[in-house]
């Protein structure tokens, strides 16, 4: 059926909808798809979990430069 969208399309529409970039027709198609597809509904929820945590990733990681690397950087700067 031409009216129904696929899971591949639905998961793409979810991203476009976040930015308000989805036409009314496509919003209705997405809504209809999500009403019958629990897997894409899960995807949508997990998408929110991911984007929310990616947003704070900077604060939550602890990668660092070694003392030697910092010293080498300082040397290059003043050269």
């Amino acid at each position: 059926m031409g009216w129904m969208i696929t899971c591949k399309q639905a998961t793409d529409y979810i991203s476009r909808k976040e930015e308000g970039k989805l036409s009314l027709l496509k919003r209705v198609q997405l809504w209809q798809h999500l009403a019958i597809c629990n897997i894409c509904k899960l995807f949508m929820k997990q998408n929110t979990v991911i984007t929310k945590h990616v947003h704070i990733l900077d604060k939550e990681t602890n990668a660092s430069l070694t003392a030697e690397e910092k010293k080498a950087m300082a040397q290059k700067i003043v050269e």
Partner: peptide, 24 residues
Amino acid sequence: NAENWINEYGDMLYRFALQRVSNT
């Protein structure tokens, strides 16, 4: 002082960059 500067901001900048380029 270059070294103080790097000690203060180096890790912060490095983390920020690393998250965005994913290559140490």
